[in-house]
């Protein structure tokens, strides 16, 4: 397993947000975490990235315990995150945003090469490379956020609600990009409220309900699960 979350608990000022969550993420494919608002999906990703400290449990990545590391050290180990709400830097240009993703890298020519690759993948970003990021549309901002994370050359990519606030046609484009990233060998943990989209993309799925895993299994199986259908797929 590339990433292993072992029985983690998280408290926000005394209130339990995660109550013993365990998950496993293999070396390839997509693992998705679905669940309602406030179920603890983002908290799980924040804990992995070192943005939120856990009160008990362990997080292991590639054979190393990472739950005591600060966020920048977690990135150095190879975990990049596209946070909820994209969180691009509004007063940096598109290109500067992308380059901050490569902050820890010193391989200059490879950075230029990766930047080219991202501009080829997102041609609209190339046109806008010198614009302030805040002037972009929501879909373009999401592309900047994903491109920025890829600039780190991550070994694992965490995506928090990439479909949030986007038009259906843009969501389809984002889905295509996620498939492409996985095909190129970067495993993805996808947090989504849009369960239909998430189960369609993923190989394996966890369902979070009020801070614990209520169900997990192959994404295809969960897609046919009666409870999941009723609660998350709206059928």
């Amino acid at each position: 397993m590339l990433l292993e979350i072992r029985d983690i608990h998280v408290h926000y000022s005394g209130v339990a947000a995660l109550k013993g969550v365990s998950m496993q993420v293999p070396e390839d494919g997509i693992v998705t975490i679905i669940g309602a608002n406030g179920a603890g999906k983002s908290t799980t990703l924040r804990a992995v990235s070192g943005l939120t400290s856990i009160s008990s449990g362990e997080i292991w990545f590639a054979g190393e315990r990472i739950d005591t590391l600060t966020a920048d050290k977690v990135v150095a180990r190879g975990i990049a995150q596209v946070p909820e709400g994209r969180r691009i830097f509004p007063d940096l240009t598109v290109e500067e945003n992308l380059r901050t993703g490569a902050f820890l890298r010193s391989d200059k020519s490879d950075i230029e090469h990766d930047l080219e690759k991202i501009f080829n993948r997102f041609p609209r970003l190339r046109e806008r490379r010198r614009q302030w990021a805040k002037t972009l549309s929501g879909g373009e901002q999401q592309m900047v956020a994903i491109g920025r994370a890829l600039m780190a050359r991550p070994r694992l990519l965490l995506l928090d609600e990439p479909s949030m606030g986007l038009a259906p046609v843009v969501i389809q484009e984002i889905a295509r990009i996620i498939r492409e990233i996985v095909r190129e060998g970067v495993p993805v943990v996808l947090v989504e409220q849009n369960a239909e989209l998430a189960l369609g993309l993923a190989n394996y799925a966890y369902v979070l309900e009020t801070g614990s895993v209520s169900l997990d299994g192959a994404a295809d199986n969960l897609h046919e699960n009666e409870h999941v259908k009723r609660a998350y797929l709206g059928v």
Binding site: S49, G50, L51, T70, A71, D72, V75, A76, A80, Q81, P83, R87, I88, F89, P90, D91, L92, T100, G101, F103, L104, R148, A152
Partner: peptide
Amino acid sequence: QDKEAAALQGIS
């Protein structure tokens, strides 16, 4: 502009 997002880029 955004300390948390900066930390997620590996910036100390």
